[in-house]
């Protein structure tokens, strides 16, 4: 299995604050990866490191086997749709396609034109006059027509209304399938990622909390409900992600690969949204959580 992105002890410091710390990740190639976490968790920092926009303060990162932004060949392999989907306001849609064609040797002009036509964007229109959704689609078109092996998108739908959001993600998924494109997509909303991603990374307070195949994650996380008890009495292979207690009852979300035999628990499924929320709201600095990946 080839690796899309591998990070070893990766960290980025701004002044005295670590925006991302001790991040160790292996993202397999050809997957649609969701990167989720609250605002300010370090998602943008991780993505900016992956495209070489910024340099790490600690550790190392390799994308598709190369150092990010190392040279034209590496840049050609990785597409990036940055936060707020920037475009040149004074340049027309056609100018943007020309820009893409001039600056990318692997540019697929037919693909770009087809997409623009299907989106019913007027090529003569200035990008500054486009709606947020159209601008995001234009930025996505630039990213796709560059024909990268991996396309990285930073909160591309954050500013879009629900309809534009769905259209954008649909277009992205079609392209990913058609061109067997690896995708890394960040969002602070799980619902954006639920339908699109098959691999999930949860990042909270500048640290990676959990990363893995979505199906594996769903299969290995369970909601346990039962009479109130001390969580430290659980078997060693059950890692508590979150816990809540009332006077008589305890509800735990645990991660384990083994079946749960304790008859005192009622075992329930955990949806992706609940799973992410459990990690996001988990107490900080819990050593067992650090070990879980």
């Amino acid at each position: 299995m080839t690796v899309a992105l591998e990070a070893q002890g990766l960290g980025k410091k701004y002044g005295k604050r670590w925006a991302l710390s001790d991040c160790t990740l292996d993202i397999p190639a050809g997957r649609v990866v969701g990167l989720v976490g609250p605002n300010g968790a370090g998602k943008t920092t991780l993505l900016n490191l992956a495209v070489g926009q910024i340099q790490p303060s600690a550790g190392s990162i390799r994308v598709l086997g190369g150092r990010p932004a190392e040279g034209p060949a590496q840049l050609a392999k990785v597409g990036y749709v940055a936060q707020d989907t920037p475009t040149y306001a004074a340049l027309s849609v056609a100018d943007h396609l020309k820009l893409g064609a001039r600056l990318n040797p692997s540019w697929d002009d037919a693909l770009a034109r087809k997409r623009i036509e299907r989106l019913r964007l007027d090529p003569g229109h200035k990008a500054g006059k486009l709606s947020g959704g159209q601008r995001a689609q234009l930025a996505l078109t630039l990213g796709i027509a560059k024909r990268p092996e991996l396309l990285i998108l930073d909160e591309p739908v954050a500013a879009l209304d629900p309809l534009a959001r769905r259209e954008f993600l649909q277009g992205l998924m079609e392209a990913a399938v058609e061109h067997s494109l690896g995708v890394v997509l960040s969002s602070h909303l799980v619902s954006d990622l639920e339908r699109t991603c098959d691999y999930l990374i949860v990042i909270v307070e500048s640290r990676v909390r959990v990363a893995g195949d979505v199906d594996d994650l769903l299969a290995s996380h369970h909601r346990l409900t039962g009479p109130r008890r001390d969580p430290s009495t659980l078997p060693a292979d059950q890692h508590i992600v979150s816990e809540s207690h009332t006077d008589r009852q305890s509800t735990l979300i645990v991660r384990t690969d083994a079946p749960i035999h304790d008859p005192a628990w009622t075992v329930g499924q955990v949806g992706l949204e609940d799973l992410v929320l459990a990690y996001m709201s988990a107490e900080q600095a819990r050593p067992t959580l650090e070990a879980v990946r």
């Binding site: 495209v51 926009q53 932004a69 040279g71 034209p72 060949a73 840049l75 050609a76 990785v78 597409g79 990036y80 940055a82 936060q83 707020d84 920037p86 475009t87 040149y88 306001a89 820009l99 893409g100 600056l103 990318n104 040797p105 692997s106 930025a139 630039l142 560059k146």
Partner: peptide, 13 residues
């Protein structure tokens, strides 16, 4: 305008 993040990610250093 953030456009440096667009242009820096074309295939040009």
């Amino acid at each position: 305008h953030g456009t440096h993040r667009l242009v820096w990610n074309q295939s040009i250093t």
